[in-house]
Amino acid sequence: MARKPKTGPASDPELLILSSLASGPKHGYAIMGDIETFAGVTLGPGTLYTAITRLVEKKLIAPQVSSGRQRPYKLTAEGETGLTEQLNDMRRVAAVGLRRLRPA
């Protein structure tokens, strides 16, 4: 079982869920598995659904209609913009940090 990092962007469940949904609609269980694959982070079911609730309230993701128990979620236009901005900010910070770490 992968351990959840204590700090850093990879510990933010909301960002992880948005990144997971960037590839298309998924239900809770699929989001969890995807995050485990691409980030090496296992989100607990409680943490996952707390983050999903917050994202739905912020209108960054939206639930889709389903017949079964598992309901898929998809990224909204607002969520897509928000994720792009957040990832670009992170890339800028990472680039500066890595440049400064490089020996002169």
């Binding site: 607990g44 079911p45 409680g46």
Partner: peptide, 27 residues
Amino acid sequence: EYGPELTGMLLVRPLTAGIVGDVLRSA
């Protein structure tokens, strides 16, 4: 709103102390 989904997720995996703690904190 979210009960059926969470129930489905909890039913298919073993309830470890970590998962119970996580769900308690979330609740």
